[in-house]
């Protein structure tokens, strides 16, 4: 089943790159994509364990679209916040470094969470400890300890989002 999913994705990518839909392109694409998906299925998707079956994963596409749209909105929001600092006459920061423990089990969703930490919000993932599963996170505008707690809650919200995707 994973082979078929990889085959479909690579075939779609092949058509996007080719920019035309003809019989020759389709035949060449099927040959190449089947070879590639046979070659790389255990290499590329070995550690990608999904919580759901592939069929249910396809049904969740609308959910993924929703996540992507909210993701882009978050990116713009935090970019506005950082760029306001850049245009200030005297920029005032109060950055600090925080350690956060995740409850995610899957390695793939950990890698997804790095996108959600680095790009939206005012955070930056500095390092990741594999044994104790701690993210080292650098905040840009945290003034007090209470505010840090509030913002930690926001990360755990994103964590829930990611865990629904891959488990």
């Amino acid at each position: 089943m994973k082979k078929i999913l990889l085959f479909l994705i690579t075939l779609a990518l092949w058509f996007v790159f080719a920019g035309r839909v003809t019989i020759e392109v389709f035949l060449l694409g099927t040959i190449i994509c089947s070879i590639l998906s046979l070659m790389f299925v255990d290499n590329g998707f070995k550690l990608v364990q999904m919580k759901y079956e592939t069929k249910e994963f396809l049904l969740k596409i609308y959910y993924i679209l929703l996540v992507i749209i909210s993701f882009i909105y978050d990116v713009f929001l935090s970019a506005v916040r950082v760029s306001r600092h850049a245009f200030e006459i005297k920029p005032s920061f109060s950055p600090r470094t925080v350690r956060i423990k995740t409850s995610l089990e899957n390695t793939n969703s950990m890698a997804m969470l790095i996108n959600f930490i680095t790009l939206p919000q005012g955070t930056l993932a500095m390092d990741f400890d594999n044994l104790s599963k701690n993210y080292f996170i650098h905040w840009i505008d945290v003034h007090s300890d209470d505010e840090a707690e509030i913002k930690k809650a926001r990360i755990s919200k994103h964590e829930n989002l990611v865990s629904k995707l891959f488990g």
Binding site: L6, I9, T10, L13, W14, F17, A18, L28, I32, C33, L36, S37, M39, F40, N43, G44, F45, K46, L47, V48, T107, N108, M110, A111, I114, D127, F128, N130
Partner: peptide
């Protein structure tokens, strides 16, 4: 590197292969 880079590398290898093959054939 941390495990995150490993995951992304593994994930992106088939798509890089498609890009290279497309460049050669077209």
């Amino acid at each position: 590197f941390s495990i995150i880079v490993y995951q992304t590398t593994k994930f992106s290898i088939p798509f890089l292969a498609v890009l290279g093959v497309h460049l050669i054939f077209f």
